[in-house]
């Protein structure tokens, strides 16, 4: 899921200081689990803005805020409340924010969160980054542990000289990705695979902005 964190309130207030009325959009998926854009957070935001003398014209927790068409349909009943607001605050990720930008071309839209990473939820409200969305998966070569993500240097050919009793030079809180891979490969009897030299990564596999159109591909296949 996409991990978000609340932005500094002062920064947010500075962004919206010239607006008086707001419509809030949350998201029931990732942002709810991150406690940044679910019902309780929208309620808290209303109270905060109330206290600042701002008006809330309405609010809604979208089912999946990054789904543009679905969100558009869901927000139809709020047409008037949105029209009445000076500005929209989106309490989900950067993708959700840009859904609103696409749907309301004439309305200022501000994010209340910073978007951090694609994460696994390890326990309630605890998240770890495991995948960098690099476009060309190498988990098949590394025992299923991603060094592009887990190693701060993204090394592909083994640990650097900064590996320290299984910890990383960048922080003792980080497990050395390559010691983890080494231990895992040993456990699954694949240690010999670690001798294979990884070529420089093809970063063009993630050429921004990425696009994928499965529909077009299907139609092509039909022809």
């Amino acid at each position: 899921m996409i991990i978000t964190a609340k932005r500094d309130l002062q920064e947010l207030m500075e962004n919206i200081k010239n607006y008086k009325s707001f419509f809030l959009i949350g998201c029931s998926e990732c942002a709810s689990l991150c406690a940044t854009g679910g019902e309780p957070e929208l309620k808290a935001m209303k109270e905060t803005l109330d206290a600042e003398g701002k008006k809330i014209t309405g609010s809604f927790v979208a089912k999946t805020g990054c789904q543009v068409l679905g969100t558009k349909v869901e927000l139809k009943p709020f047409k008037d409340a949105i029209a009445e607001a000076d500005c929209i605050l989106v309490m989900s990720c950067g993708a959700g924010t840009q859904t609103a930008v696409e749907l309301y071309e004439d309305k200022p839209v501000y994010p209340t969160n910073d978007t951090l990473f694609l994460g696994n939820m390890t326990r309630l409200q605890m998240f770890d980054e495991r995948c960098s969305l690099c476009g060309k998966c190498i988990l098949d070569k590394t025992g299923g542990i991603c060094p592009v993500t887990a190693c701060p240097k993204g090394l592909l050919n083994g640990p650097c000289g900064g590996t320290n009793e299984g910890k990383c030079e960048v922080s003792p809180d980080i497990e050395c990705a390559w010691v983890r891979i080494y231990n895992r490969m040993k456990r699954i009897n694949k240690l010999e695979d670690m001798r294979e030299i990884a070529k420089p990564k093809d970063w063009s596999a993630h050429k921004k902005p990425m696009k994928l159109n499965i529909r077009e591909k299907k139609e092509e296949a039909k022809k």
């Binding site: 083994g158 640990p159 590996t163 010691v179 670690m194 001798r195």
Partner: peptide, 14 residues
């Protein structure tokens, strides 16, 4: 003198 040394030696070979 890295610990564990084996991955370090594998990298040396590479």
């Amino acid at each position: 003198e890295a610990n564990p040394v084996e991955p370090q030696l594998m990298k040396f070979e590479k």
